[in-house]
């Protein structure tokens, strides 16, 4: 409780210090997508790599029902309960009226078309590293999906976290576009880094969070407690994840560990996404995971 209280206080101070006029959400330049056109076929790969359905579809959905992005999944946290919104192309209740630039501002800046900050439960701290071409392709694909007329439910977040302007301070601290794993990488490892750090947003669960709820990049992918839930997200650095690259790739495809245990919880949904990727992309993720620094 004390930890949350302290977080609340710091949060409020940052908000006040940031100032109202300073705290308006940032956007990409209006010309950011000039010369870029989206391709829905490529966008489907981005959709699976980005894991959109895992949060925005019904968790029990199978097959084509995973493409009905009505939202509604609940995400409890120390700051309140967030509820995934409708991102189907319904013009009233979803994102049917969004331009590709709107999607790019949402995913890479955490800024809504109305100019509000999104809560970072939406993993824009990862998607900020996504290429704008991939975002445009994803936009083209999303617009081909079935519209669902379910209204988005409001988040159940209380003061002070319900003041979205205060997220300015949070973004200042935690919205970083540089790679966590820098240095010389092979092309395969670079591809894996893009899939893990950007689209796959693996760090959002597998990296421990600070008291303010930002990813602790110094302990990248080393696991941590499930916020307001049971269990722990596992450490997937080489300190604990000692499988071969082939075994990691197989797990991402079938959900089976080398011992034929099988993926559980939200990770089972992640595996359902990863199964749509190419074998080369799964191998690239494995190559990257073997390259990150081990953290005990």
């Amino acid at each position: 409780m004390r930890r949350i209280f302290r977080a609340t206080l710091v949060f409020a101070l940052i908000a006040a210090a940031g100032g109202w006029w300073l705290s308006a959400p940032s956007r990409l330049p209006a010309s950011a997508l000039d010369g870029i056109s989206g391709n829905a076929t490529r966008g489907e790969k981005i959709f699976w790599a980005g894991g959109c359905a895992s949060c925005h579809a019904d968790p029990d959905a199978e097959g084509d029902d995973k493409l009905k992005l009505a939202g509604g999944q609940r995400f409890p946290s120390p700051f309140g309960t967030f509820i995934a919104p409708n991102i189907s192309p319904d013009p009233e209740n979803g994102v049917g009226g969004w331009s590709a630039l709107d999607l790019a501002n949402a995913m890479t800046r955490g800024t809504s078309p109305e100019g509000e900050h999104y809560y970072p439960v939406f993993p824009y701290t990862s998607y900020i590293k996504a290429s704008l071409q991939d975002v445009a392709d994803l936009h083209a694909f999303l617009m081909t999906l079935p519209p669902v007329a379910t209204p988005s439910a409001p988040h159940e977040v209380s003061f002070p976290f319900n003041i979205r302007r205060s997220l300015f301070g949070w973004k200042f601290l935690y919205l970083k576009s540089d790679w966590v794993l820098a240095g010389d990488l092979t092309p395969e490892e670079e591809r894996g880094r893009y899939l893990v750090e950007a689209l796959g947003h693996c760090g959002e669960c597998h990296t421990p969070r600070t008291a303010l709820g930002g990813m602790d990049r110094g302990r990248w992918l080393s696991g941590g407690p499930v916020p307001a839930g049971q269990g722990r997200f596992p450490n997937i650095t080489p300190a604990k994840l000692t499988w071969s690259a082939e075994e990691i790739a197989e797990y991402l495809k079938s959900g089976f560990t080398p011992d034929f245990d099988s993926a559980g919880g939200h990770m089972a949904l992640v595996v359902e996404n990863m199964a749509h990727l190419s074998p080369e992309d799964r191998a690239a993720i494995a190559a990257y995971l073997q390259k990150v620094p081990p953290v005990e």
Binding site: P59, N235, F256, A263, G264, A268
Partner: peptide, 14 residues
């Protein structure tokens, strides 16, 4: 069927 049950009823662990 393994994954179906684990998805709904298993908590993550290290």
């Amino acid at each position: 069927s393994c994954g179906g049950c684990h998805k709904a009823f298993r908590v993550p662990t290290n």
